[in-house]
Structure formats: C-alpha cells, structure tokens
C-alpha cells in the first residue's frame, strides 16, 4: 500500500463510521500538558513538542516515526472511568452502547499490552463489547533503545503473537499489509484492497519457549527476594501514582457508586486505581495490608514480573519506559530490573 493508498484507506474508514485515532506530533509543549513534568522530564525526542494520540482526518496527520505516544492506547481498551450500571432506587441497568474507533499506528509494544488486556478481561462483557468495536491497525516501526527496554523489533514471525486486525510494515516507500483477524480482512476487502497476507494468531507466547528474562526476574522476585531494593526505592518514591497512569499494562481498578443529583439515582462505575494509593489495601476498620511505600513498590513490580508471568506466561511490562518518563523522582525501571536480576 502506498502513502496515497493509505490516504484513501483513511478516508474510506472515516466514511464508514470509524473515527481514527493515532500518534500525532503536537507542538503543544509539555509545559502546557503538565508544567511539573516539563520541569522534571528528560528532553523528548522532539525538542519542541510531543507525540499524543489524537483523532486524525488524514493519514498525513500521523507521526509514523516509530516514537511512542506520550500516553499509551490503554484508555481505548480500559477507560479511566466506565459505567457498569445505571441505578435508580433498586433498579440497575447495564449500558449497552459502545462507539466504534480505529486505532492506526499502534506499535508492537502497545500491541503487547493488548495481549494482556485480552487475557485479563477475557470474561468481562464490558471489555468484550468495547473490543468488538475497535479496529486495531498495528505498525512495524519501534522506538530507539531509550524508549524500548527489551529492544523489541519488528520481524515477520512476531506477528502471529500479536493481536491486530491489520498490520502495516514500513518498507522503503510503501507499506506491506497483513491481516490478523476476519474483521481486518473484511474491512480491507470492502475498501477494495487485496494485496495482503493473513496471519493466523497463535496466542501471545511463542510455543514451547518462555522468555529467559521473564523467568529470571520471576525467579529472583519469588525465590531470592531482596528487601533492600524496595527499602531504598521506598525512601524516594512519593506515591504519586503517575507510573500507574502512564503504564500501558497497569489496569487495577476500583468500583464505586456515584450518586446523581436526582435522589436514589446514579451510576456504579469502574475506574483506574493505583496500588500506590493509601486506600488501595485498606479494609473496614482502617487496617492497611500494604503498610509502607516499599511494600507498595514491591507490589507494583511483583505484579508485572511475577504474578502476570504466573497467570499468562508473559511479562506484564512491554518495556516502553513511559513510567520512567513520568516519574517525578527519577525512578528508572531499567535500573530497577537490573537490581532485581542481580539480587
């Protein structure tokens, strides 16, 4: 597919009711998004702006340089707040509408996070409804090592382990096109594009072989715990929870009832929570099971590098380093992982 073809494809999608979201370079300075971040963040790849996920009108709006957007695509899959039920007195109703959206230009790193959502929310009717209404268009370029902890790069045999409907591989002047679902095939055929290859999804993990780094980190965390790492981090972490917001694989949530103005009415919501917040482990009577900052940081790392591997055989970290970028006290996941491995 040529750049011109992509332009036509974008127009086709928009005509067919798919609002398109993708990485867009924005001259909006980080200061405008968060003055605090601007003061603490190492300089971005673009000196005069950032990449954000925005709705696009034309393909040329997209930034397909392979740089990761500042925030991940998480909110399209697991929104910051969603309504589980609307209630009035004792009556509860489940909302059943979900908007269509096409996500164009998701990197392999962000697609790996989708592998996790798909597993975690396998039995969740709200997630499944939302997921059915998303068209995922992946993209082959990945960030440089500074933003790619596990040095993940495109290779054709990685595709069968990634969840996508359509995948664009950047070649010299054009894109090679793959499909990963019937939905992707239908959309391309209907658009009138046939020069694609289909990849049968074979699950998130390469058969018969677990990632060495994952096994090593899990073994260290479970069998050779080193409390010193967490005590030291506990002294500098201020429990702001920014890493959990920026992280594409952090999906902890809380469920609350939010009353409306009308008496007896309101909604039961599910929204992002953070294991760094005081209330996270608090039970009736005020007892907290995660008592210290050190315990909370360990909880965060243990989830990603021990519990998720136990549950799904892959790591709960895609290596995007967004957590390090937003950390106001400079905790760098790359260094922490090295410490765990050496413990």
């Amino acid at each position: 597919m040529t750049q011109g073809g992509l332009e036509k494809f974008v127009a086709y999608l928009r005509q067919n009711g798919w609002p398109i979201f993708g990485p867009v370079f924005s001259a909006e300075k980080t200061e405008e998004v968060s003055p605090f971040l601007a003061a603490h963040q190492p300089k971005s790849a673009h000196k005069d702006g950032q990449i954000y996920i925005k709705e696009i009108q034309k393909a040329e709006d997209l930034d397909l340089s392979g740089q990761l957007p500042f925030y991940s695509f998480k909110r399209f899959f697991v929104p910051e707040q969603e309504c589980l039920f609307q209630y009035e007195k004792e009556k509860l109703d489940q909302p059943e509408k979900e908007q269509k959206a096409a996500l164009l230009g998701m990197s392999i790193l962000d697609l790996k996070a989708v592998n996790l959502y798909d597993q975690v929310f396998e039995k969740d009717p709200y997630y499944q409804l939302r997921r059915r209404n998303l068209l995922i268009i992946g993209y082959s370029l990945t960030p440089e090592i500074q933003g790619n902890l596990f040095e993940i790069e495109y290779e054709e045999n990685i595709l069968e382990h990634l969840p996508f409907d359509i995948f664009l591989v950047k070649t010299d002047k054009a894109f090679k096109v793959f499909t990963g679902s019937i939905k992707g095939q239908r959309v391309l055929e209907d658009f009138g594009y046939k020069d694609y290859q289909h990849i049968q999804y074979s699950g998130p993990v390469k058969e018969g072989k677990l990632e060495e780094r994952m096994e090593r980190l899990r073994d260290r965390l479970k069998n050779h715990p080193n409390p010193q790492i967490w005590e030291e981090l506990g002294k500098i972490c201020i429990e702001c929870g920014k890493c959990t917001l920026a992280c594409p694989t952090c999906f902890c949530f809380r469920i609350d009832d939010k009353p409306a103005l009308k008496e007896g009415a309101g909604k039961r919501t599910r929204e992002w929570d953070s294991c760094f917040y005081q209330e996270f482990s608090e039970v009736a009577g005020g007892h907290k099971f995660l008592k210290t900052t050190a315990a909370r940081i360990l909880f965060w790392y243990y989830h990603k590098f021990a519990r998720i591997p136990d549950e799904f055989d892959f790591m709960g970290c895609v290596g995007c380093k967004r957590c390090a970028k937003v950390c106001p006290v400079g905790i760098n996941i790359e260094e922490v992982l090295k410490k765990i491995e050496n413990s």
Partner: peptide, 17 residues
C-alpha cells in the same frame, strides 16, 4: 483483604502470587 471485583482481576486482594 480489600476486594472490589471478586474474580481475581482488580488486584486489591493480591497476596504474593
């Protein structure tokens, strides 16, 4: 433990593995 979902998803009640 504090619990929200009841089905092993929300993470509040995690204890080690």
């Amino acid at each position: 433990r504090r619990m929200h979902c009841g089905i092993g998803v929300c993470q509040h009640c995690a204890v080690g593995p």
